[in-house]
Design a protein around this nucleic acid. Structure first.
Lengths: 189, 189
DNA sequence: CGTCGACTATCGTTTCAACGACTATTGTTT
DNA sequence: AAACAATAGTCGTTGAAACGATAGTCGACG
């Protein structure tokens, strides 16, 4: 069965006037469809897209600390080397950093962290240095949840595009990156 | 300036293990970024993505009626031929149809139509035939709003992908369509 | 040393989406 | 014809996103 045309798919009665419009709609729809499956998987574990993103960021920073410590040898330098998650969490990042690294700009990290903290997936700690900032770090429970999600997510991703060849994926990636980065400045507000 | 790699863009520290994962993330992110500009344009006119979609659907159905009437000659057959928007609206569709034709599945068309009706962009009418169904049709104000949006939207779309060649757009479109339609059944619930 | 300006995070509020329960109406079955 | 199931839409409620205003804190500067 050949793939149905986009025009037919959305019940459009007139063909597209410009190839840019068709490609754009195609791109947005495809992205949304693929992400919908992803979001459904997350929701089955009680996570939204944004909250999952926060957890991933926090795990990433925790991993940095862990790698650095490992590189310096078993005995941690400077921060000392408590074996398990200490009261002073390693890999804690200010809320602001979370907001910057998120895929979708979320103007209210506080509420997001609130909900995660209520479920004990993250932890909040105030620093002595700068009492304005609140450091957020992922807890053991949060790491466990992510670990449980890793395999299903990888499987889903690979399954979603399993029917594409390596060459197609490479071409697609190249074109997407180019599409996202116009030579001129991004669209003005 | 070469396009920055996706890996660097999201602050990822490890390269992607599988090309599928990278392509997928790239696809989702690109679609979201492009749609964000679109949503911003809509919002500047007080419309959300979903409400715009509803209006487009209604206009599409109104256009069908208009085209049919024109094909049959000036004197409309069956539905009669009032010149301007009559009290009994042409091109009215049940709410259920709207829900089916929308790009994103919205489980509550009622509220969506509520808000549009409150702004006099659509109109609700009950049929005599089946008193359960509510027919929705677009008003003159709704058509005007859409008309005002048409050009900016087309411009935006073309601008967003203006730096791609025809060949690239064609290839991108083909790969996207293939990506969205795996040979196997879609991802199960 | 006190004040001003910039910054960080939180909170109040409004708006919207999602899920489910519920009412009204139609067609079907016996 | 009466009971039944199926359908179309509405409504209540919960949860989350968006926007703006606010309080607390730090650094610089007079």
């Amino acid at each position: 069965m050949p793939a149905p045309s986009l025009q037919h798919e959305i019940g459009k009665r007139r063909p597209f006037e410009h190839p840019e419009e068709e490609a754009l709609l195609n791109l947005v729809r495809t992205g949304a469809a693929l992400q919908a499956d992803f979001a459904r998987l997350l929701k089955s574990h009680g996570l939204s897209d944004a909250s999952y993103n926060v957890l991933r960021i926090l795990r990433g920073h925790a991993a940095i600390i862990r790698r650095r410590a490992a590189g310096r040898g078993k005995t941690g330098a400077g921060d000392n080397g408590a074996a398990h998650e200490a009261a002073r969490p390693r890999g804690a990042v200010p809320s602001q950093t979370i907001g910057q690294e998120m895929v979708a700009h979320v103007p209210d990290v506080t509420r997001l962290v609130d909900r995660l903290e209520a479920r004990a997936l993250v932890r909040r700690v105030r620093t002595e240095d700068d009492r304005r900032v609140v450091l957020v770090s992922i807890t053991r429970a949060g790491l466990d949840l992510l670990a449980r999600l890793d395999k299903p997510i990888t499987d889903l991703h690979r399954r979603q595009l399993a029917h594409m060849t390596r060459g197609e994926l490479a071409t697609l990636g190249r074109l997407l990156t180019k599409a996202r980065h116009p030579p001129s400045a991004p669209i003005p507000p």
